[in-house]
């Protein structure tokens, strides 16, 4: 047998081993999280190595403790969930409102400084967010925005705008200019053209973008920690969960139930729209 044949055979087997390995490595932590969240804590401490328990042994006390309002002795995650949802949806809508015209300008219009705009965007990611955190902490304290969800939303908009514009721009450049010219001939103004011609065509990219912003806002931790830690009523789920782990009398299984509550919405959204998101994020990357 020659080298090509040997390698092809070896790789055929190896490929399946790699695929199986990848699936286990990525999914197992999620499975373990789910499993621990329904096991009683003393049973976990006795048998840490079990990876299967029968349905009869399951408990939902952990979820009850996590979701019950703090007034009634629980951890109040329902409130945190609504805070997170509020911030994430607001950030998503605002980012799209700002980035759609921005992306259109960058992809279609010639204006002074168009080439330099990218350097400005780069600055968002080049500097550590902890560096931005210090002046924003001071600024928002002075404006009275620090303990509020509004301040947090503004930060998330700024953090996601550059990627958002980049993704949309890549998509907009694939829409033929002739369509716009036809619209112009029909007497559409530029804004009308964007609304009636460009937006419907760019709908997949806009959706992907919305998902991206939502995920970033939902998952974010540092700014929530810095801005909101003193106001329990304003905590997001990420922050609530992190604070929960510092509590003394919180068992690990309750912590895992909280993790499931935090992760589940994102996973559901992700699987519902996975194709949109992956294609939107890498649009243009394949042109290398």
């Amino acid at each position: 047998m020659d080298r090509a044949a040997v390698e092809t055979r070896v790789l055929r087997v190896l490929r399946w081993i790699v695929i199986a390995g990848l699936v286990v490595v990525t999914l197992f932590p999620f499975y373990y999280m789910l499993l621990l969240s329904v096991r009683p804590i003393d049973e976990v401490l006795q048998n840490p190595g079990r990876i299967w328990v029968g349905i009869s042994e399951w408990t939902i006390d952990t979820y009850r403790e996590v979701l019950t309002p703090s007034g009634s002795g629980g951890q109040g995650f329902l409130k945190f969930l609504s805070n997170s949802a509020l911030v994430s949806v607001a950030a998503t809508v605002m980012t799209l409102l700002v980035s759609i015209p921005g992306a259109y300008a960058v992809s279609r219009l010639r204006f002074t400084g168009r080439r330099q705009v990218h350097f400005l965007f780069l600055s968002v990611y080049l500097f550590p967010s902890i560096l931005l955190a210090i002046p924003l902490f001071v600024l928002f304290t002075r404006l009275g925005l620090r303990g509020s969800l509004i301040g947090l939303t503004i930060v998330y908009i700024a953090q996601t705008l550059p990627v958002s514009i980049y993704m949309l721009r890549n998509y907009l450049t694939t829409i033929p200019v002739s369509l716009e010219e036809a619209a112009a001939v029909d007497g559409y103004s530029r804004l009308q053209t964007i609304r009636k011609v460009i937006l419907p065509l760019a709908a997949p990219a806009v959706m992907a973008n919305a998902l991206y912003v939502f995920m970033i806002a939902w998952n974010e931790f540092l700014f929530a920690l810095l801005f909101l830690v003193e106001e329990r009523a304003d905590w997001t789920v990420s922050l609530g969960l992190a604070q929960l782990s510092g509590g003394i009398e919180v068992s690990k299984t309750v912590l895992m139930a909280g993790s499931v509550v935090l992760t589940l919405p994102i996973v559901i959204i992700f699987f519902a729209a996975e194709r949109l998101l992956t294609e939107g994020l890498t649009a243009g990357a394949d042109k290398g």
Binding site: G102, A105, F111, F127, L131, L132, A158
Partner: peptide, 21 residues
């Protein structure tokens, strides 16, 4: 038009990113 469309972005990035830096 280009500057006008991009101005909201510029304002946000300027106020929340560049000035803090």
């Amino acid at each position: 038009a280009g500057l006008a469309y991009l101005s909201p972005t510029l304002v946000v990035v300027l106020v929340v990113v560049v000035l803090p830096i």
